[in-house]
Simulated assay, not measured.
Amino acid sequence: MAKLSVIIPAAGSGERMGADIPKPFLELGGRCILEHTISRFLNVRDIHQIVIAASSNYLPRIESLFKNFEEASVSYLAVEGGSERQYSIYNALQVIKDEVELVAVHDAVRPFIRSSLIEKCCEVASKVGGGVIGVPAKDTIKQVDEGRNITATPDRSKLWQAQTPQIFQKELLIKAYNSALADDFVGTDDASLVERIGGNVQMVEGDRKNLKITYPIDLKVAELILNNQL
């Protein structure tokens, strides 16, 4: 497998969770969510580097957190994030190792991604340019106008819910980010930036346990998953 670096943006707030600290630092089963998330990547073959982007006041905490991981073959680095997720990832891209071939971007609050899915996504990215973990949409999706009037019902069979990691060939992702910066374009995810410059990105089917912990109910579900009750 190609050499892999992982970028984990962790600069978001805990506002929607109703917490005083950012969501990645909330406790889950005796460890913070971010620690669970990092550990999921340490069993992946050819993992070389993990870069966490966070607000400046949390950088010392992240650097202290790194001491809990003893994998000598993996380089750990914390960098200051930006005002938007996209700018945090751009900052992290500046410190990616030269020898790395693939870059994964993963939400800090998705602590249940399986290493086998990460490796499958890496294989797809190596072949076509980019791979995105996702699941088929299970609900009917409605398109609305500014007044919330329904204007269309897209064919659900062609709709997927994108998750992370989203993994790309390093040079392709860097090119996409540089283009977005030059044009002052902000996308909804990393794949949208790569799609914008004509890059090929393929969906890789994941599972629904790879949830993003955003609201208090998500933390309750995460506790059930952690305790093998779901």
Rank of each mutant, 00 (worst) to 15 (best):
L4V: 01
V6M: 03
P9Q: 01
P9H: 02
G14E: 05
M17Y: 10
G18W: 07
G18T: 04
G18C: 08
G18Y: 01
A19G: 08
I21V: 10
K23L: 09
L26N: 03
E27R: 02
G30H: 02
C32R: 08
C32N: 15
I33M: 12
L34T: 14
L34A: 08
E35D: 14
R40P: 08
R45H: 15
R45C: 15
R45Q: 15
Q49L: 06
I50W: 02
V51K: 12
V51H: 08
I52E: 00
A54M: 10
Y58P: 02
P60L: 06
P60H: 11
P60N: 07
R61A: 06
R61W: 10
R61P: 05
I62G: 00
E63M: 05
S64K: 02
S64F: 12
L65N: 04
L65Q: 01
F66W: 04
F66Q: 00
F66D: 04
E70A: 08
A72I: 09
S75D: 02
A78S: 13
E80W: 05
G82D: 09
S83V: 03
S83I: 08
R85E: 11
Q86N: 03
S88N: 01
Y90P: 06
Y90A: 15
Y90L: 15
N91C: 04
N91K: 04
A92P: 08
A92F: 01
L93T: 00
Q94N: 13
E101W: 03
L102A: 00
L102W: 00
V103P: 12
V103L: 14
V103Y: 08
H106T: 13
H106G: 13
D107T: 03
V109D: 12
R114N: 03
S115G: 04
S116I: 11
S116H: 04
L117Y: 02
L117T: 01
L117R: 09
I118G: 01
E119S: 02
C122V: 02
C122R: 01
E123R: 10
A125H: 02
G129E: 10
G131R: 11
G131H: 03
I133L: 15
P136W: 06
I141W: 05
V144H: 09
D145G: 05
D145S: 04
G147Q: 13
G147I: 07
R148M: 14
R148P: 00
N149D: 09
I150K: 03
I150L: 12
T153K: 14
P154H: 07
D155F: 13
R156P: 04
R156D: 00
S157V: 08
K158S: 00
L159M: 14
W160R: 11
W160D: 07
W160Q: 08
Q163M: 15
T164L: 04
F168V: 11
F168N: 14
K170C: 12
L172I: 15
L172R: 06
L173D: 13
K175Q: 15
A182N: 10
D183I: 03
D184L: 07
V186Y: 09
G187H: 10
T188M: 11
T188P: 04
A191Y: 10
L193D: 07
L193T: 03
G198Q: 09
G199C: 11
N200L: 11
N200T: 14
V201N: 11
Q202T: 07
V204A: 06
G206W: 11
R208A: 05
N210M: 14
L211P: 12
L211K: 10
I213P: 07
Y215R: 00
P216N: 09
D218R: 12
K220A: 06
L224S: 00
N227G: 05
L230W: 10
